[in-house]
């Protein structure tokens, strides 16, 4: 692996890591398996594409994407809490709906963003080369997100969301409306995913309606790899672990792509299979370990 590939994996790991922190919020904190993310990542990208091509400031485009993601998450959560649709199904419905919505937003399946201003421009104007500028921005944004999410989970509201996922009967009898907490939590999660989508689109110079395929699996892989490597004893540790897990996951992919076994070589289209197998192993390892011990 070249240094260039390592740097690329770090860059990708950080920007997708923001998405993975969002997945952590739903999957681990709220115990709400949320597939909306496959639609809200391209939603962030689509909103950004529309905003940037309309000449809106790229930083405002980030804010608009965050708002869009939050709304998408809210829709899923409202379907689940108020209308009693199973959480998994609710999120699939929102995801499917977002496919059409994203194409409407972009007025087509994809938009090129090569000739527009992006959030990396201020750094590039300072003389920092393009690929480093994006890494610097991603480090900055990821650090802000980690600090922000950790802080939030220690506030009254954040603790109530934590308790909602852990013991909804307990927190209800403390006077918290768990529906509101789920709507807020899933909204926040998707806001982060859309932010990630916006940054990815600005970085790769294009927004594509299909860029969200497999987001949830990549997010889960990052969460689980992070937990295995760094542990999840405390909240700050768990969230840093998710980010680290995302970077490790991208490194692993970069390595897998270079893999050659005689005639056979791994192609990018094999990635989803590799990721799915990785997640299955990580999810089932504890159960299998137990069974082996018993027999």
């Amino acid at each position: 692996m070249t240094w260039y590939a390592v740097l690329g994996a770090l860059e990708q790991g950080l920007v997708y890591g923001i998405m993975a922190v969002g997945v952590y919020l739903t999957f681990r904190i709220l115990d709400f398996p949320d597939l909306t993310v496959d639609g809200s990542l391209p939603l962030g990208a689509s909103i950004t594409a529309l905003a940037l091509t309309s000449g809106i400031n790229p930083f405002i485009a980030l804010v608009l994407s965050i708002a869009g993601g939050f709304l998408a998450g809210m829709v899923t959560a409202i379907l689940n809490t108020k209308l009693k649709v199973l959480h998994l199904l609710a999120s699939i419905l929102t995801m499917i709906a977002l496919y059409s919505i994203n194409i409407r937003i972009m007025d087509g399946p994809n938009v090129s963003l090569l000739a527009v201003d992006t959030v990396f421009d201020p750094l590039i104007e300072l003389g920092i080369p393009g690929h480093l500028a994006s890494t610097v921005v991603f480090i900055g944004v990821a650090a802000l997100i980690v600090i922000g999410v950790v802080w939030f989970l220690y506030t009254e509201l954040g603790m109530s969301i934590l308790a909602t996922g852990d013991n909804s009967q307990m927190i209800t009898s403390q006077g918290v409306n768990t529906h509101t907490m789920i709507i807020l939590g899933v909204g926040l999660s998707n806001a982060l995913v859309a932010l990630s989508g916006s940054l990815i689109a600005q970085n790769q110079g294009a927004s594509d309606v299909n860029m969200g395929v497999g987001t949830i699996v990549a997010g889960l892989a990052s969460v689980i790899v992070g937990e295995t490597v760094l542990g999840d004893k405390t909240i700050p540790r768990a969230i840093i672990a998710v980010l680290a897990g995302s970077v490790i996951y991208r490194l692993a992919i970069a390595m897998a792509l270079g893999l050659e076994l005689g005639e056979f070589s791994v192609s990018p289209s094999d990635l989803n299979l590799i990721t799915a197998i990785l997640v299955v192993i990580a999810l089932t390892a504890p159960t299998i370990k137990k069974k082996l011990k018993l027999s």
Partner: peptide, 17 residues
């Protein structure tokens, strides 16, 4: 205890504990 100390009240962005 902090969660219980706010039973029935609004919860905001102040530190939980």
């Amino acid at each position: 205890l902090a969660l219980a100390y706010k039973r029935g009240q609004k919860r905001g962005l102040a530190f939980g504990v």
